[in-house]
Structures are given as C-alpha cells and as structure tokens.
Simulated assay, not measured.
Amino acid sequence: MRRKNARMDLQVLRSFQAVAEGTTVTDAAADARITQPALSRALNRLEDEVGAELFQRVGRVLRLTPAGRVFKEYVDAVLDSYDRGRRAVAEIVDPDAGAVSLAFLHTLGTWLVPRLVTDFRQAFPQARFELHQDGEIGLTRHLLDATADLIITSSEPAHPLITWRRLLVEPLRLAVPARHRLARRRRARLAEVAEEPFILLKPGYGLRGISETLCLEAGFTPLVGFEGEEVETLRGLVAAGLGVSLIPSSPDSTTPPDSPIRYLEITDVHGARDIGIAWLSSRALPPITRRFLDHALKSAAAPAASQATSRA
C-alpha cells in the first residue's frame, strides 16, 4: 500500500508539472491513465497539502498563481532528481545501457548527430538517446536546466560552469540563387556580394554572429533582407532569389546539378565555424554518456579529415 501511494503522489506531481506547462487537465489525466475528475481531485488535494492555491482559471485555461510558480521550481527539481536517480541505478545494473541525453543545433541533425549515434549504437546497441534540437542560447539552457547532459554547438558557451571541446571545423559557403551572376563559379570573395540583401538567422543565433563577423572582416556590414529561425528557411529564400546567405556545409554534402542554389567557397575570409561538445563541469556524467562523449571526441573529426584527404 505504501508503494502504491508513493507512486500515485509522484504521478500527481508529474500531472501538476504538465498542467503548469500548458497541458489541459483532460490531456494530463489521459497521460496518467486516470479520469479527468480524479486528476482534478488529486490537484485539489495537492493544494490542500501545500496550503495555497496553485492554479487560477483564466477562461478555459489554468494558469499558475505566484505560489504555484514557486512550487513548480521545486517540483521540477524533485522530478529531475528522481529521474536521474532511476537512470543512475539502471546504469549500475547495466553500464552499457541507459540513455544519453543530448541536445544539438538544428543543422547538425542532418549529418553529424546521426553519424555519431549510428556508430555509437553499433558498439552499444542497448544505449538509448533522448534528443533535443535548439539554437545556441537554448542549448546552454538545456545544460543549466539539466534537460540534457551533453550539447553539440557551434561556439564555446560563455559560462564558467560549462566545459567545451572542439570536435571539428565546419565550412561555411556563400549560398546564391542558381541564376545569380556568380552561380557559375566555384569560388568568390564575400566582398563581391556586399551590396546584396542577406538572408540571416535572427540575432542570438550563433550563425548570425559568425555571418556578421565575416562580413565585417570582408569590409562591409550586411544588408539584412530577412531574418529567420531555421537554416532551411534561409536555403528556401535564397532559392527563391530573395538574397544570398552564409550556409553551413557538411563535409559530405553535394549539390545536384538541378539545385536552385549554388554554394561557393569564400576566398577573402575564413568561412568556417567551430563545432564542439559541452557539458557541465560540476556534473558527474552517467557511464553511458561518458562513453558517448569519448566516442564523439575520438570520431567526429574523422569525416572532415577524410574529406580533406580525398580533395587533396
């Protein structure tokens, strides 16, 4: 009986967390496999136990009260600690299993992360992955909020608690429409497009800062034609002829002849960005996560090295 009550209390906290983050009571009840009235009563009992109203109804939506916002911070910590404890025990029982919690840049989800995960699972087939995609600022938050143990990012986070190691250097190419005046060339100076509109990511994204820095090194400030949140959006708008952009290029990427975009090597500035992996210095990584970190550090640079060798 005591075990059942403990399990139910934990589920109530998870349901409270879900509703606090915007899930409806009906959907939270379905996730908990109980009825909506039963969950409502459980949340009311939780408020009685805490001694304060945790939610207030705004129209058809429940919003946290000031007391609810404070309480949620502790609930998040309790649930995170419990989940980590379960993972730690599971990894003691079977060190080759467990979950690697990894967050990474959107652009790395098309080549680097799949390659690292595939190779790692060949050696550790029981390993599972909890994956998250985000921008530079969001990735740092994943580490600090303990929603990821590792992040793969394009710049070293400026935070004293985070350790970062370079994995590889990723080329950046000048992307122009297929009918652009430079499209027939393989190389170009960035200064040659100084008067043209640039399709860039919004401020705060790592690629935005790198793009602006390269343009300044080439002697101009980019004329911003559009600001997006996804690199694929940049590609699409360049293909539509709305401007040019600086786009990451994976080591094994190829451009088909009928592509609406051409990618040119930049000759007057060093068009590249560092790709690295980071973790919290004060946090002990689970065994399977430490193995993945070692795997990434050893193998991530291999594709770039082999590509350079083949070009030579």
Rank of each mutant, 00 (worst) to 15 (best):
Ala194Trp: 02
Pro66Gly: 04
Asp9His: 11
Gly59His: 03
Thr107Ser: 09
Ala67Asp: 11
Tyr205Ser: 00
Leu39Asp: 04
Ser211Gly: 04
Leu190Arg: 01
Ala301Ser: 13
Ile275Lys: 01
Pro256Cys: 13
Pro171Thr: 07
His106Arg: 08
Arg84Leu: 02
Arg283Ile: 10
Thr213Ala: 13
His180Asp: 13
Asp96Ala: 14
Asn5Thr: 15
Ile275Ala: 07
Pro287His: 04
Arg2Gly: 10
Pro66Arg: 02
Ser155Met: 13
Val238Leu: 08
Gln11Lys: 13
Arg185Ser: 06
Val193Thr: 10
Ala272Phe: 09
Gln11Glu: 15
Val169Ile: 10
Gly204Ile: 03
Ala99Val: 14
Gly68Asn: 00
Thr267Leu: 13
Arg41Leu: 09
Tyr74Cys: 00
Arg86Gln: 13
Arg41His: 08
Ile277Cys: 04
Thr163Arg: 14
Leu131Thr: 11
Phe220Arg: 02
Thr110Gln: 12
Leu13Asp: 07
Leu293Gln: 05
Arg33Val: 10
Thr65Trp: 01
Trp164Tyr: 15
His270Val: 15
Ala194Tyr: 03
Ala6Ser: 14
His270Arg: 15
Ala178Asn: 08
Asp27Cys: 00
Leu223Met: 06
Asp96Asn: 10
Ile288His: 03
Pro157Cys: 07
Ala18Arg: 10
Phe71Val: 02
Thr65Tyr: 02
Pro257Asn: 09
Glu217Ile: 01
His180Asn: 10
Val176Lys: 07
Ile210Val: 14
Ala312Asn: 04
Pro95Cys: 07
Thr147Lys: 08
Arg141Met: 13
Ser245Pro: 10
Leu172His: 04
Leu234Thr: 06
Glu227Thr: 11
Ser250Leu: 12
Gly228Tyr: 05
Ser40Gln: 11
Ile288Ser: 01
Ser299Asn: 12
Gly276Ile: 09
Arg41Gln: 11
Ser299Gly: 01
Ala284Asn: 09
Ala38Leu: 06
Ser81Ala: 15
Gly236Asp: 13
Asp149Ser: 12
Ser211Thr: 15
Asp268Tyr: 11
Leu79Gln: 05
Thr140Met: 13
Lys202Gly: 06
Leu102Thr: 01
Ile152Trp: 03
His180Ile: 11
Ile92Tyr: 03
Arg291His: 09
Tyr74Met: 04
Lys202Thr: 06
Arg87Ile: 00
Leu167Asp: 03
Asp268Gly: 11
Asn44Pro: 00
Pro160Asn: 07
Glu21Ile: 02
Gly98Phe: 00
Ile92Ala: 08
Leu293Asn: 00
Phe129Cys: 04
Thr221Ile: 10
Glu195Asn: 11
Val113Phe: 05
Ser81Ile: 00
Asp134Tyr: 08
Ala301Pro: 00
Val231Trp: 02
Val169Ser: 14
Pro197Asn: 03
Pro256Lys: 13
Leu167Phe: 07
